[in-house]
Design a protein around this nucleic acid. Structure first.
Length: 115
RNA sequence: ACCUCUCCCCGGAUGAUCGCGGUUUGCUUUUUAAGUUUGCUGAGGAAAGUCCGGACACGGUAGGGUCGCGUGCCUUUUGAAAAAGAGGGACUGUGUUCUUAAAGGGAUGCAGGACGGAAAGUGCAGCAGAAAAUAAACCGUCUUACGAAAGUGAGAUAAGGGUGAAAAGGUGGGGUAAGAGCCCACCGCUCCAGAGGUAACAAAGGAGGCUAGGUAAACCCCGCGCCGUGCAAGACAUAACAGGAGUAGGGCGACCCGCCCGACUAGAAACUCCGGGUAUUAGUCGCAUCUCGCUUGCGAGAAUCCUUCGGGAUAGUCAAAUGAUCAUCGAACCUUCAGUCAGUGAAGGGGAACAGAAUCCGGCUUAUAGGGGAGAGCUUCUU
């Protein structure tokens, strides 16, 4: 699926809602939080790579781009519309795309995101 | 040719599929929006640190002082400035050579750098050493008292030893109880002077027994320069309200002097101060090479880069676009084999450093695998 800029979350209130009302699971490299919302006209996604992940902006960018690729590759199989927040853990800096993909899909199965 | 140093340049490549930002050409729809589609375009030499300098914006800029910040040999070139380059001077370290009995001095080469002031004041200095800044007596030397002697006490002494980065001028002679610039010669040093030089600087000459150790990237003093806050600057639009207090205060950092604006008329208005929330974790602009013109998104011109010489290009995000996967190629490096004095060649493996624009520009600093080029020095080889 495509991920245009419109799909990204940018409101603090949205993040708070997902955190309080949604479900979340932690994996080896990422933490995934989600909340189904019928009112949404399109998916709302966020990829969080804080400075705790790495002090180097270059590495944070790489991790975030890899996480985006996971959704681009598998997003069509998910149940929409919903909020999905992906938070990178410190170990994600060392991970390859394959490892991130496997970790993410495992969490998606636990959260019943996949159809 | 090897090695070292300095400077400059590059700093993974190509293709396919999928995807993102900007811009653009059409088309579609439920048309204030979205989908789809055609082109073009999209990270760096440091984008980093935020250490300097500017542009730009705001703060109603009289002026002066104190605090504060920056800067610091001279001449000159480039530059808006910071800064950088070139040449020179003094100093420190070091090599060669000449001279001298020695100490020392002259000539010449190389290297270094925040290179105003240590004779205004304050502070600081581990260990070693007896003693480290109004010098100092551990050993030693000399005098003297006591003693048979060994030695002990008192005093003199900075020549010798030892410690140290540094021991308060050096060498030789005189002198002395032993010594000491105590005296003398030479050298050094300090002060005066000032030929010469654009200047930093400084030759000759004169005076002084020598006083004044180091550290200013410690405080500090001196010269010169500096208004503050930074694009979260700031401007505009829409929506939507709700206040409180006051009437003299307000004004380019703080404090002081001083100056300017303003009220002094009851209310209103106006102004000032305090304090909120929503749209708004800003909607548009600022903001994307520059200038000019008008129809305000086009035209013209200019600059830089690329070029098939026709032209083409000029990042603009903002919970952060510039990416992912695969294939081919690939530098360093590793292994094996072959060969040579040596450079090397073949096969296999391996798979690219530091690092991500955030208003823009010029510097500085820091990180950086590897490759290329130029210059200098040293050594060696060949002719």
């Amino acid at each position: 699926m495509k991920l245009p800029r419109r799909y990204s979350m940018n409101q603090r209130a949205e993040f708070l809602r997902v955190r309080q009302e949604g479900q979340s699971r932690a994996g080896r490299f990422v933490i995934v939080a989600t909340l189904a919302e019928e009112k949404l006209s399109h998916p709302k996604l966020a990829f969080v790579t804080s400075k705790r992940v790495s002090k180097k902006a270059c590495e944070r960018n790489r991790v975030r781009r890899l996480l985006r690729e996971v959704i681009i590759k598998h997003g069509d199989d998910f149940q929409w519309p919903r909020y999905i927040v992906t938070i990178a853990r410190t170990s994600a800096v060392e991970a390859t795309f394959e490892e991130l993909e496997k970790d993410w899909l495992r969490l998606a199965r636990k959260l019943d995101i996949k159809t």
